[in-house]
């Protein structure tokens, strides 16, 4: 599904190097978690994959289903099946949630030469998905993320994911700012989307999210590299001992 090879990234405006050779292979249907201390490059990896400006790839590659992601604009990456759930979803006053989501869905479908979804079909689709995520109809009518609580914003991200049906979902610290109940709702939403044709890359500081979204593979990232890869036990080890021991062995 997602293949990252020797990815080196620096900030465009500065000499600061952030990713120093990331290698990652996420198979179809798999859930991978990336953990790591602050400043290790986790969020940068998610931004570079989704095409945010301000970063320069100096070496390496990233492909999604064999397609060179790095050669595409952000909207083309989305149409190719990539989705980034933001750590801080953006508020867009004056643009209705439904208008935004339908514009996005139809833009993606158009890019893939698929027929656009009519207003009626779309309404049915969204209502159905919203119900399973416990998002009420009132929230759908409001402007994108405006006046939403932290939990509502994250659920809205998962709703977008459910409607857009991406192949590769990157969740950037989706658990940050959520209480236990809200985290459970978000995790349930993600779990409902798990299937053999869809993969997840879950970026998090803490093991607790992984109690709810069980990963197949756990990676530890530090100083712009993946320094260890293991099974779910690796996350438990971090939770128990912190990052210090792991880092001491490598840095």
């Amino acid at each position: 599904m997602l293949e990252i090879k020797n990815l080196h990234v620096k900030l465009q405006e500065e000499e600061k190097v952030i990713l120093k050779g990331v290698n990652l292979h996420v198979g179809a249907g798999q859930v991978h978690a990336i953990m790591g201390p602050n400043g290790s490059g986790k969020s940068t990896l998610s931004y570079v994959l989704s095409g945010r400006e301000g970063y320069e790839v100096t070496a390496g590659s990233a492909t999604l289903l064999g397609q060179d992601l790095l050669a595409l604009d952000p909207e083309e990456r989305a149409a190719a099946g990539l989705f980034l759930a933001f750590q801080y979803p953006v508020e867009i006053p004056g643009v209705g949630n439904m208008v935004f989501l339908r514009t996005a869905l139809n833009a993606q479908r158009k890019a893939r030469n698929e027929p656009e979804v009519s207003a009626g079909e779309f309404l049915k689709l969204v209502r159905e998905k919203a119900k399973t995520l416990k998002i009420d109809a009132e929230m759908l009518k409001r402007p994108v993320n405006v006046g939403f609580s932290g939990g509502e914003k994250k659920r809205n991200e998962i709703l977008q994911m459910a409607v857009l049906e991406p192949r590769m979902c990157v969740l950037d610290e989706t658990d940050s700012g959520l209480d236990v109940d809200a985290m459970k709702l978000v995790a349930d939403g993600v779990n409902a989307l798990r299937d053999a044709g869809r993969s997840f890359l879950v970026i998090t500081h803490y093991q607790r999210l992984l109690d709810h979204i069980a990963p197949d593979v756990v990676h530890i990232m530090a100083d712009g590299r993946i320094i260890r890869t293991g099974g779910p036990d690796l996350a438990l080890e971090v939770e128990k001992n912190g990052y210090a021991d792991l880092l001491a062995g490598v840095l």
């Binding site: 996005a104 890019a111 402007p143």
Partner: peptide
């Protein structure tokens, strides 16, 4: 905001239009 819209598949020009409407709201 522009990146957020584009990351959802909205082409740049269309995303700018949405943000203009947001500004005028």
């Amino acid at each position: 905001a522009l990146f957020y819209l584009r990351s959802r598949g909205v082409p740049r020009e269309e995303a700018v239009s949405l943000l203009v409407l947001s500004f005028l709201a």
